[in-house]
Structure formats: C-alpha cells, structure tokens
C-alpha cells in the first residue's frame, strides 16, 4: 500500500476508559498513518465512538496514552485546544448551531480560533460549500435544510479549520436512506483527496470501497484489524464471523 512509509499521525497505546463501573475501552493499541482511511465497525456499546471521542478529548481517557500529530493528550488545555483545531469531527446528530446561518456556522471557528478576516473565511467557506455541493444554501439556517444537507454543512464546518485528521461518528445513522448517498459521496471524495480519516459507521459498502483498514471493535477492544478484503472475506475471529453473518 502506498501509505506504508507514511508517518504515524495517531498513536494509541493501551487506552483505557471507564464510565463509572462500566469499562468502555479495555486497552486499545493502534497506530494510524497519515492519509490512511480507517473504518471502525462493531456492535453498539462496543467502544468505537468512545475511542474517536477520546482522540479529540471530548472524553478523557484514564490509562494509556494517545499522541496526535506528535502532541500527547493530557490535561494541558493548550494542547487540547491545539489538537482540536487540527482534528475535525462530524457527529451523528450534525450538531450545527441553529442560531447561525450556514455560512456563519462554517466561518465561526476560522474567524475566532484562527483569527482569519471575515472575507477570507467566507471565501474558504464558499469553496467548501461548493465542494460538498450546496453553495446555494449559504445564507439559510440549519433548520431550513434537509438532514443530508445539514450533515454536508457539518463536514464543511469541520473542513474550514483545515484539519489534518477528520473523525466521523456514525455520520449517516440519523439520515433518511435517500440522503445517505449524498453524504457518503462527499466522504469518498474527501478520502480520495488524501485526508486522514477515522470513520465509525455501519455502512459496509463504504468500508469495502473506501477504507484502507477496517477495525472491528467488541467489548472495548480491537478484535480484528486488517484490510477490507481480509475483513469481509477471511475474518480470523469467531466474533467477527458472527457479526458479519448477522449484518450481511
């Protein structure tokens, strides 16, 4: 694979995380390289969302270490803010700011975190809206858009910070079936452009077609780790086989 020589951009080592008595992550160790597209699959409650939320510290891990782009995630607020501005995130429920227009949603962080002038931020915003295919919606409010359009705005909002890594937390799970494709198309285009991506999803077609690597999660650990081909045709573990037999 062409990315084998690329540099490591996310290094997780023995990451553990508890919610009260419940252990969500039981020592996750994995390395993600630049430009790699990693799809994370697994039953609900298996810890896959928790892992990517730990990577931009929306959740704090309790043991082990996570290093993103050479910066270790600790309680140092400056590091956290720096990493968050390098790591874009797209949520299942879009989480657009309902009181701001689409354009203001996109330009808010570039203007106040990156201190960009408004003109420049809006120019970038318009380019991104064209990239996700909805430039004509720039002055509408999120409540006036369809779910698929909202999720594409959310992707544009994350891209506006020019992140090195994009995290997707079940981006299509809250969408009507006919809108899933428009969001997946945008994500495919993004993957082809060389963005480092971690995608938590149930879209097996996307995993098969776009992923460089598939991680299968169960009970807070990585059960299976390999190429999509390996994962879908020749899984090693019984748990993976059972999961695949249920969903395919």
């Amino acid at each position: 694979m062409q990315i084998e020589n690329a540099k490591d951009i996310i290094v997780c080592d023995g990451v553990k995380k508890w919610f009260g008595d419940f252990q969500a992550l039981k020592g996750v160790t994995t390395t993600i390289k630049e430009q790699e597209v990693v799809v994370v699959i697994g039953p609900s409650g298996s810890g896959k969302s928790t892992l990517i939320r730990c990577i931009n510290r929306l959740e704090a891990h309790q043991e082990g270490s996570i290093v993103v782009d050479g910066i270790e995630l600790t309680n140092d607020l400056r590091n956290i803010e720096k990493i968050r501005s390098e790591v874009g995130m797209v949520f299942q429920q879009f989480n657009l700011f309902p009181h701001l227009t689409v354009m203001d949603n996109i330009t808010l962080a570039p203007m106040w975190v990156r201190k960009k002038p408004r003109d420049e931020a809006e120019e970038t915003g318009m380019e991104l809206l064209e990239r996700v295919g909805i430039p004509e919606q720039a002055n509408k409010y999120p409540g006036q858009l369809s779910g698929g359009q909202q999720q594409r705005v959310a992707i544009a909002r994350a891209l506006a910070m020019r992140p090195k890594i994009m995290l997707f937390d079940e981006p299509t799970s809250a969408l009507d079936p006919e809108m899933i494709k428009e969001v997946l198309d945008v994500m495919k285009e993004l993957a082809l452009s060389g963005m480092t991506m971690i995608v938590v999803t149930h879209e097996m077609g996307f995993a098969r077609e776009v992923a460089d690597r598939v991680l299968f999660f169960d009970y807070g650990t990585i059960v299976e780790d390999g190429t999509p081909e390996h994962f879908f045709t020749n899984p090693q573990h019984d748990r993976t086989k059972l999961f695949l037999s249920q969903i395919l």
Partner: peptide, 20 residues
C-alpha cells in the same frame, strides 16, 4: 452536542459560551 461541536472546532470555553 452543541458544546461538543463547538469544542471540536477548537473554540475555547469562553468563546463556546459567548457564541454557542
């Protein structure tokens, strides 16, 4: 989710309160 989205794009706590 609003706070998470604001934090995820790198806003500080104060900016999050003020704008979101």
């Amino acid at each position: 989710g609003q706070s998470e989205a604001g934090l995820a794009v790198g806003l500080t706590r104060a900016q999050l309160l003020r704008f979101v």
